[in-house]
Measured scan of single mutants.
Amino acid sequence: MGFKLLSKLLVYLTASIMAIASPLAFSVDSSGEYPTVSEIPVGEVRLYQIADGVWSHIATQSFDGAVYPSNGLIVRDGDELLLIDTAWGAKNTAALLAEIEKQIGLPVTRAVSTHFHDDRVGGVDVLRAAGVATYASPSTRRLAEVEGNEIPTHSLEGLSSSGDAVRFGPVELFYPGAAHSTDNLIVYVPSASVLYGGCAIYELSRTSAGNVADADLAEWPTSIERIQQHYPEAQFVIPGHGLPGGLDLLKHTTNVVKAHTNRSVVE
C-alpha cells in the first residue's frame, strides 16, 4: 500500500471513529477524501466538511520552486461564519470567499490569524475590503508590521502568557507558548472536538522541520505538551499544512522538532 493511500485511509478511519463516538456532533463529509496538494491548482481553494458547521479550507501556493498546501478553518456561528487564517495570499483568499459563498452561503463576518507569517495573514486586506472584521493577538499584529505583512485590524486580548485561553464565538483560542513562531495560536472547536494546530503542528508525513527561522526550538516541545494537557479530548487535529489526523500529530511534531534540534547540535 502506497504512503499517500495509507495517509488518506488514516484520515478516513479517524473521521469514521469520530462519527461513531459522537453521532450528534459529527456529520463528516462523505463526498470524498481530504484534498491534497496535487489536486488543488494554485489560485483555487477546496472546502472539506469535518463536522456539522465545521470545515477546513485548503489552498496551495508556490514557494521556492515548489507547491505547498495550506489549511485553515471555518466555523459556523449562528447565521454567520468565523474564518481562521487566510488562504495564503490575496488571490487565494478572494477564491476562498467565493467558494464559501458557493458552498455554504453564509457571510464571513470575523477572521482570526493564528500567527504573523504570510500563509496566515496574506489576504487580510481582501477580507477587510469584503467587510470582514480581522483579528490577531497584539504580538501577531506587531510582528506582521515588522515583517511588512498585512496586519489584522483588531487585537485579541488575554493571550499574552503561555497557557492563556479565551473564548471567541464558537471557538476557544489558546496560546501554548512559542513553537513554530513566538505568537502562534491554537484554535479548538469544543462542539466538535476539532483542534486546529496551525503551523505549530505537523502532518504525519512530514519528517523535516522546514521553516524554523522564527521558531523557538527549545520551547516548542513544552508548548505541545500544554496543548495535549489542555485538549486531551480532541479527536480531529488539523495541521497548518497537509493531512489531518488525531492527537498523534502532536507527538510526531515533537519528535521531528527534537530530531532537528539534535542534528543542529551535532553539526
Rank of each mutant, 00 (worst) to 15 (best):
S7G: 13
L9A: 08
L9S: 11
V11L: 12
V11E: 11
L13W: 06
L13P: 05
A15K: 05
A21L: 10
D29H: 05
S30E: 09
S31P: 12
Y34Q: 07
V37Y: 06
S38F: 10
S38G: 10
G43H: 03
G43Q: 10
R46W: 09
R46Q: 11
L47P: 02
G53F: 06
V54T: 06
H57R: 08
H57M: 02
A66Q: 08
V67R: 11
Y68F: 14
S70P: 01
N71T: 13
R76V: 08
D77T: 06
L81D: 00
L82S: 06
L83E: 12
I84H: 02
D85G: 02
T86C: 12
A87F: 00
T93G: 04
A95I: 09
A98Q: 03
L106K: 08
P107V: 08
T114E: 00
H117E: 00
G122A: 06
G123E: 00
V126P: 05
A129P: 07
A130F: 12
G131K: 14
T140K: 02
T140Q: 02
R142K: 14
V146D: 12
I151E: 11
P152E: 04
S160H: 14
S160M: 12
F168W: 06
Y175F: 06
P176I: 09
P176Y: 00
A178F: 07
A179E: 01
Y188A: 13
P190C: 00
A192K: 12
Y196K: 01
C199P: 01
C199I: 00
E203W: 03
L204R: 06
S205L: 11
T207A: 06
S208A: 08
A213V: 12
D214C: 12
A215V: 10
D216H: 03
L217K: 05
A218H: 15
A218C: 11
W220R: 02
W220S: 04
P221K: 14
S223I: 14
I224Y: 01
Q228T: 15
Q229K: 15
Q229H: 14
Y231M: 15
I238A: 12
I238G: 02
P239Y: 00
G242H: 06
L243N: 15
G245K: 04
D248E: 07
L249I: 06
N255F: 04
N255I: 15
V257R: 11
V257W: 12
K258V: 09
S264V: 13
